[in-house]
């Protein structure tokens, strides 16, 4: 027990760090769900695709990188965000748009199919072997209240935070953001009021996928290993985070990510790391049955 108490700051920080990845991916789930009530199963795989795009660019530019440092990594991340954003839009156009208004079961199955296609498409192109990321963020750690906090962790948290603040501002302050919120309230109504619904939905997919792509590059640079199935579990976790925060709610998704990270971290400290995933899913099930609206969510009703 004494061991556990002295570990608390470390457990807290580890949870917070992983949670910020969850949050970044959860945003895409939450935005898409909020607007067209679609559970985009392929979203976790966009994160994986982002990591592979970052890998490809970094491998292509090769040795020049090390001279440029962090700045170059951010540029590569932005390029990957653009590409994953476009991929997200293409997936939406090909797989989801034709089914708008179709039964939910059909759309869900399409999403599962899209996820498979992305995973095994990457496996077919890049081979199923795991890859070592060509660039890794190294740095010393500092002790904060007894927790080891590394410089790369701080940098990545800052990037994630900046992206989330930018998104929050975008949704609250711009006309596109307003249009998104309008569509999530009443799609047909917005259509009648002159909102270009399809364009706004595309933009939503673009932003959500770009954020996941950014998370993918960041994960590659931090953990150093990428493979074609890396998006599956984290996608489920991110969905869990979105549900915990209140799906459809942007700030809820951020909060949910951090909460899930903490819950997992403390959970595996108490019951053992091999139960970590089981723990996360148990939390999801508990939330869905006891408080399906999440922490910040509003009352949602099944669309008929």
């Amino acid at each position: 027990m004494a061991q556990f108490i002295s570990d608390i700051p470390q457990v807290f920080w580890d949870g917070l760090f992983v949670g910020s990845f969850y949050a970044l991916i959860a945003l895409g789930y939450s935005m898409v769900y909020g607007i067209i009530k679609l559970l985009n199963f392929a979203h976790g795989d966009i994160y994986m695709v982002g990591a592979f795009i970052g890998y490809t660019i970094l491998t292509a530019i090769g040795g020049t990188f090390h001279m440029l440092g962090l700045f170059a990594l951010i540029i590569v991340m932005m390029i990957s965000m653009l590409i994953t954003g476009v991929i997200g839009v293409v997936v939406e156009k090909l797989a989801y748009q034709p089914l708008r208004g179709a039964p939910r079961l059909a759309v869900l199955i399409t999403a599962v199919g899209a996820s498979f296609a992305l995973e095994y498409g990457v496996a077919a192109i890049a081979s199923p072997n795991p890859r070592g990321f060509p660039v890794r963020l190294d740095g010393d750690f500092v002790l904060v209240l007894g927790a080891r906090v590394t410089i790369p962790q701080i940098i990545l948290m800052l990037i994630a935070g900046a992206l989330m603040i930018a998104l929050d501002t975008y949704i609250r302050r711009t006309s596109t953001g307003r249009a998104m919120r309008a569509i999530s309230l009443d799609m047909k109504g917005s259509l009648l009021m002159g909102v270009k619904v399809n364009a706004v939905i595309s933009r939503t997919f673009f932003i959500g996928s770009a954020l996941a792509g950014a998370a993918g590059v960041m994960a590659g640079a931090y953990y150093g290993k990428i493979d074609f199935l890396m998006g599956f579990i984290i996608g489920l976790k991110a969905f869990t985070a979105a549900v915990i925060g209140g799906i459809g709610n942007i700030r809820g998704a951020m909060l949910g990510g951090l909460v899930l990270g903490l819950v997992e971290s403390f959970g595996s400290e108490l019951v053992g790391g091999q139960w970590r995933d089981a723990f996360a899913f148990a939390v999801l099930i508990l939330f869905l049955t006891l408080r399906p609206t999440g922490i910040l969510g509003e009352r949602v009703t099944e669309r008929v």
Partner: peptide, 18 residues
């Protein structure tokens, strides 16, 4: 290519014959 094919099939079938 088995799972890639399965994934694409799911999408195509749902889009054209839900």
């Amino acid at each position: 290519y088995r799972y890639l094919l399965f994934g694409l099939l799911l999408v195509v079938v749902m889009v054209f014959r839900p």
